[in-house]
Design a protein around this nucleic acid. Structure first.
Length: 267
DNA sequence: AACAGCCCCTGGGTGC
DNA sequence: TGCACCCAGGGGCTGT
């Protein structure tokens, strides 16, 4: 499940392959991936535009284009993957959107579960405007988090997943951050003491930064579960011992979503 | 503001 | 080997 670190890794890998390339053709094999404008407009607006840079906001990939006036935004959903390959590379039955580039290569968007989304807005704020702060940016401070948590009665774990609260945290890193901070995922946000909020702030940044660091070396984007599991302390480890204290990890459902935590370490 | 419920999808897992 | 079934998950939407 691509969260902020995986999206960031994608951006870094794609940047050298895409920057400076001009899109010559758009193939839409699953038009419903396109949220806006209409698939037909998407198809006519892209050819002739050149990629001038790549960025990220939350879990969105931002592809800057020239001439300006439109920005390509991609959300990978749960199973989305992007790759740049030669046009004659082996066809991929899940490559639902294919952008032909003028260097004979293609940007392929594959998404087996089809939760991904493509946008080509005039104003990117139309899509990104409601997102909360970037957790790795300077504006995301312990003070900010402490203040915001005090204002919310919502349970902390589902709150961390709200993209309009903080951008980029998904189920995996929410669970991992709470474990590292020693905070029970069921606690109301406003029950956290300032010291706990500060610990959570630090944990979120550490967990995300470490994950980004590791994508570069071990994470081959197609999840090699072995590598992945080793790194995760609670996520997906229900029933297995907590790496810190040995107590079996519990798995419960919170806000319609699986939550994993150590009942001993997280209070 | 909060939250339950539903929907979109499909590979992978389980039970028969 | 195959079939029926259930589930996870990001996020948008509706209804309470």
């Amino acid at each position: 499940m691509p969260e902020l670190p995986e999206v960031e890794t994608n951006v870094r890998r794609l940047r050298p392959d895409l920057t400076g390339q001009t899109i010559t053709d758009v193939q839409l094999n699953w038009p419903r991936h396109v949220v806006l404008p209409t698939p037909a407009e998407f198809q006519t607006l892209l050819p002739g535009r050149t990629v001038t840079g790549l960025g990220r906001r939350g879990k969105y990939i931002i592809i800057e284009l020239a001439p300006a006036g439109r920005t390509l935004l991609i959300h990978l959903g749960m199973s989305g993957q992007l790759s740049v390959v030669p046009a004659d590379a082996r066809p991929d039955k899940h490559a639902h959107t294919i952008l032909a580039l003028d260097n004979g290569r293609q940007l392929r968007f594959s998404d087996t579960r089809k939760f991904g989304k493509l946008y080509l807005p005039v104003d990117r704020q139309q899509v990104l405007g409601k997102l909360g702060p970037e957790p790795l940016s300077p504006e995301f401070t312990a003070g900010w988090l402490t203040k915001k948590l005090a204002q919310r009665r919502r349970v902390i774990k589902p709150l961390l997943l709200q993209q309009n609260f903080i951008a980029g945290i998904g189920n995996i890193y929410a669970d991992e951050s709470l474990h590292r901070a020693g905070v029970d995922p069921r606690r109301p946000a406003n029950s956290l003491e300032p010291a706990e909020a500060a610990a959570l702030h630090a944990s979120i940044r550490e967990v995300l930064a470490e994950a980004i660091e590791h994508q570069g070396t071990t994470f081959d984007w197609v999840y090699p579960d072995g590598e992945m599991q080793e790194r995760l302390r609670v996520y997906g480890r229900g029933g297995r011992p907590c790496p810190t204290c040995g107590t079996p990890i519990e798995r419960i459902v919170l806000g319609q979503r699986g939550a994993h935590f150590c009942p001993q370490c997280q209070q």
